[in-house]
Design a protein around this nucleic acid. Sequence first.
RNA 1: GCGAGAGUGGCGGAACUGGCAGACGCGCGGGACUUAGGAUCCCGUGGGGCAACCCGUGAGGGUUCAAAUCCCUCCUCUCGCACCA
Length: 829
Amino acid sequence: MAEKYDPVALDRKWQRRWEDAGAAKVDTADGRDKFYMLNMFPYPSGSRLHVGHGRNYILGDALFRRERMAGRRTLNPMGWDAFGLPAENAAIASGVHPREYTLGNIGRMKEQLKSLGLLYDWSKELASCDPAYYRWNQWLFLRMWERGLAYRKTAPVNWCPGCRTVLANEQVVDGRCERSGDLVQIRDLTQWFFRITDYAERLLAGLEGLDWSDRVKTMQRNWIGRSEGAEVFFPVDGLTEPIAVFTTRPDTLFGATFLALAPEHPAAATLAERSPNRAEIGAFIERVRRESRLERESEGGEKEGVATGGTALNPVTGETIPVWLANFVLPDYGTGAIMGVPAHDQRDFEFARKYGIEIRPVYRMTDGPDADRDIDPEAMTEAAPHGGVLAHSGDWDGTPNGPAAIRRAIEWIEEKGFGKGRVGYRLRDWLISRQRYWGTPIPAIHCPACGVVPVPDSQLPVVLPEDVAFQGAEGNPLEQSEAFVATECPGCGGPARRETDTMDTFVDSSWYYLRFLNPADGTKMVDPERAAKWMPVDQYVGGIEHAILHLLYARFICRVLKDLGLVDIEEPFARLFNQGMITKLNPATGKVEKMSKSRGNTISPDDLIERFGADTVRVYTLFIGPPEKESEWSEDGVMGAWRFLQRVHDLCDRVAAGAPEPSEAPADSPLRRLEHRTIERVTADAARFHFHTAVAALMELQRAISEAAAAGSETPGSLRRATETLLKLLHPVAPHLTDEWWERFGNRFFLIDVAWPDFDPVLATSERVTLVVQVNGKVRGKLDIERGASEADVLALAHADEKVRAWVGDKPIARAVYVQDRLLNIVVR
RNA sequence: GCGAGAGUGGCGGAACUGGCAGACGCGCGGGACUUAGGAUCCCGUGGGGCAACCCGUGAGGGUUCAAAUCCCUCCUCUCGCACCA
């Protein structure tokens, strides 16, 4: 009597068994045959995971199980990116403490992960809000401070009014807060930074060897934004220090007809003061600074400026040029000041035309209708000049446009002491301080006598105080905790105040992958021996949204740790996979939308698991399409996965009754051939994460075995053998059902004693092949031939074929193209 | 504007180095069975003819015995960057 497939019972049974057996536990002291598989650790939010999140974890779990079956010591840990604003906002709204809120979410999310049959080494679980974890953020911060890599400065920074905190540049998207969507303002504040710019060159160089998508690598490259050029000094009348500008086109220096400073530039205020136009200039500075980042940085935005009345000396021409303040000059790129070359830069041109500043071309055309005439700035379509030779440029005249001209200009100005060659980066230092409670306290103390001093290592961790009121709080709740704030100076022992800023949560996530190797170690942040054995992470899986933020910070911190002697690698993630989103068709609009809580179109795996079991959700999620692309969720599609698993179950049931042992079918058994071909296909597909085609191959194998069983064309033993292979190959995708049948077939469960099957390349290729016969490139016949047949034999067979003969007729054969075992193309005139 | 990627049946998608376009699944059409279950099973399913055949991978051109795949031009969509000097 056939037994019905009861997936819910199997889920319960096997999840329990795996957990009791510690199936995913790995001793990281032993690094032989290691494979480090890692999903980006999640933020434990209050809402349930939807199938879009599920895809990420299911894919990781399938990869983990496959590596394990291939015999590698595979580490697959899980932890929680547990600090962050949502918990604090929930506290403000409901009064529940962020810790309580976060721990509750962790508990629920963990259950949900387990319900999908995901296997993690929970003995290494960590949460970044745990003092045992974040003390090492503080330790790292102190080491960086000692080396000048952590520092405090007053600078124009991004302020999110919604989150009431400053943000890193990376967290500002289109001028808005990446989290809340509020328009970001620029404010002058004293903040803590990590000197990531010191690592710009290394971060750029390291991208070369990474097995990451070009997409992500390009994004990082653009973000770092390296450009070569020069810093040039312009003496300014009345200032003791010359103003430095950064330019990528020092070759156009003779065409610099004005200087423009960002309104935030330190010299701006000085120049304003001594100008008769003081009030107007002050108003301009104020107005620009109040603009949001979006307004300030939108291209094509109206260029505005104000003349300071001051003058500078163009060092190469010896001429006096006006000094302006301009809204399009950014305070935190280059030196915050530019030389204006209106003839050869689109922005400078617009500005100069608007304010009547001299436009002076320095390149002259050498060919075309305008040969021997200066380049016409009006006709220029691009910002930078291309072509022509230098003119009106003293010694430089006649130098052709190009890198050589730039090099020559740099040499020249260096020789004369007017400036020097320099590389500029778009990348800014990482602003890591946040004016919020739920994060790692920055281990610094403000002493009226000694200034800002580090907390000694012996006093770590600086623990977040619990007795803080959130509701109705103004500003950072930490400030109200007098018990926390009041302290004594470690230097002079006098009364002092603790820093109340906390760290960006991206600090937490920049090194957690190392902590999984020694999560309980209270004596050190990273265990260098284990790190040497286990790093880098062999396969990292996560969303594309971290292409810059997390992935750049982690690469930076890994290098810092290397320089501290804790790890011996620079790149933490050897291979990166970014899964695509899961979308949902909106029946009302007919449009495909991303699945998100705010749209209310999420599909929860929970009810699907209740009805069909975790394996159905897993099979469908992996079957839905290539995992790197976005895919559309379909309710009906789930039913296809469900039916497939039922058929597998029915097949196992039937086969188990037929034979107590597997046996080998003869080499010419079509089923055995298919079995080996399927192993080959699934192995290759899994290696490139294409479980959708792997599942398709397994569906074909299942059907073939079922048909052979119905037809009685194979012995019960060989049916059983093929079925066991099916179970092995299916295990990473559908672990509960396969473990169940593997056990019923008299074995122990998968992760302990099953190896990924090997295929015999001879068996994986069939003996006979269908060879296509074309006449003039069109298929006119098919021949069932022995593999390896000679061209002459095939040609003879083709000529004997009636249909082929009809098409060839008695026309002369111009040529015949033969592709072994594939095709014969007879070309006739 | 710059950079990256993608356009294949009614739908999701296959086709690894050029060699039978549409595997597998959904949907749809037909049938079987009924323990009436979100049933299940079998057959069919690119379009036109309903046969021989012809036409088909965003559009147009090219290379080749042979192109979804390579080259050129163009169109559409998605993503990233964008006043970075």
